[in-house]
Design a protein around this nucleic acid. Structure first.
Lengths: 255, 255
DNA sequence: GAGTGGTCTAGACCACGTC
DNA sequence: ACGTGGTCTAGACCACTCA
């Protein structure tokens, strides 16, 4: 099977992985300590750590100082991306779509909002069809579920469009930003989402409290009115607690 | 800023990361060797490796035996998920939507198909509203772009629905599976996509030739006819070469 | 063959959690 | 106080790539 024999630390990882998947170490349980595993697998501590690290990188287990390695628990909520800008639905609820999605799953959402004015970077400028360096208003939201950090959502607007409006204030907008912009004459009629995933950088890892080995799902949404793009929203969601959902019917893309 | 001073290997990673992002080590270039970095940062080899490993885990650089660490190149293609089941478009092209997407970006797509009959696992069974253990036909596709592995796509069908049809053969279906199933009386009218990301397990990493630190984007699509689900497709795409796109218009989700 | 990363050992001390 | 993981050293030999 293997060309030679596999490295010791790979064997150790394979062995522990099998025990986790078989239920010998169920979600939430502790693994034996590194020193214990040294004896069991007759390996040095560094080798044991290499093997454990592999499981951490797969997102199977996580470690923290002073405590034993623990098997990861899954607790995933669904964020329905295809209806998240639904105008009627938002108005009926009086809250934003994410808040409603989370409440429907029996959880308590909250968010911290901060607002700043920045120079558009190259990618934001391109999406908004502006020149790099032009002013954009940035609305950053850190979202919590049951007081645990859950996702970040950063929206970029051309500054000219939203200055001196409630959008430029760091507070909730009851009817939602989309509806408010429509009342200003900027009614968004089309959205393009690009979805990818990255490993968190240190800043993101701290902000969202993600364990090592958990990727971030990144959705970049550009909102268009009849005349052009007016908003870019970048949402970052740790995949150990989020699934992004799109519901599609036939006929909508036949044009 | 930091509570104390940061660990040496973190400082090393931070320093190298900055040099990569500033362009001192551009994409495709080589990093100094581990032994060289030992001198520069006055650290042991293990410590140097810890720091480099951090950059590998972020997907910034990759390593392979006998060669220097190299800064990762990006080469990303777009897969437009919202139109991928578009009936008219598929018929016009005579090829499947993924093939058309790739060709439109000036690249050469190809795929290997294999077919098997399996017992449905719990998650597949639930999606197809079957009992676990009932027979499903599995159509696995390994997709290539310019002869490089690009993504995998595994489709699951209730065996009763497709046995003794071309779908059960490991070959291309010129008009596409969706159109063929429609001609059998199973016209899919609605799709639900769940998107998440995972770190590849060893098997996936080998099959798709992904470097360490690159997450896989995983799309699970369930296709429904008027009477119920008839197909589950799981697509796995390394995020260093794929972006998933959804185009949404207002009105489509107002129900 | 020289240089690279990959694997591995056998120690040491520190920081943190739990008791 | 004790056990846990976190950081770090100073070696060694192996496997692979490239000139």
């Amino acid at each position: 099977m293997a060309t030679r024999s596999e490295p010791l630390y790979v064997q150790l990882a394979t062995s522990l992985r099998a025990k986790i998947q078989s239920g010998e170490y169920p979600p939430g349980s502790k693994l034996p300590s590194e020193r214990k595993l040294m004896e069991v697998y007759d390996a040095s501590r560094n080798t044991v750590r290499l093997g454990l690290q592999r499981l951490v990188a797969e997102g199977l287990v996580f470690a923290s100082q002073g405590r034993a390695y623990m098997v990861h628990r899954q607790d995933v909520l669904v964020y329905n991306s295809s209806r998240s800008e639904d105008h009627n639905r938002r108005l009926a609820a009086g809250v934003d779509a994410w808040v409603q999605d989370i409440q429907e799953q029996g959880r308590t959402p909250s968010q911290e909002i901060s607002v700043s004015i920045e120079n558009a970077g190259p990618s934001i400028a391109q999406s908004l069809e502006m020149e790099p360096g032009e002013l954009v208003l940035v609305r950053r939201r850190l979202r919590f579920v049951d007081d645990q950090p859950w996702s970040t959502e950063d929206s970029y607007y051309p500054h000219e469009l939203v200055k001196n409006t409630p959008i430029a204030e760091p507070a909730d907008i009851p009817e939602g930003v989309i509806a408010y912009m429509a009342s200003l004459g900027h009614k968004q009629t089309r959205y393009v989402d690009d979805v990818t995933a990255v490993m968190p950088n240190p800043k993101q890892a701290a902000e969202l409290a993600v364990e090592a080995g958990i990727p971030l799902l990144v959705r970049t949404r550009v909102g268009y009115t009849e005349t052009g793009p007016v908003r870019v929203t970048i949402t970052a969601m740790p995949t150990d607690r989020n699934v992004l959902r799109y519901e599609l019917g036939t006929g909508e893309n036949d044009g």
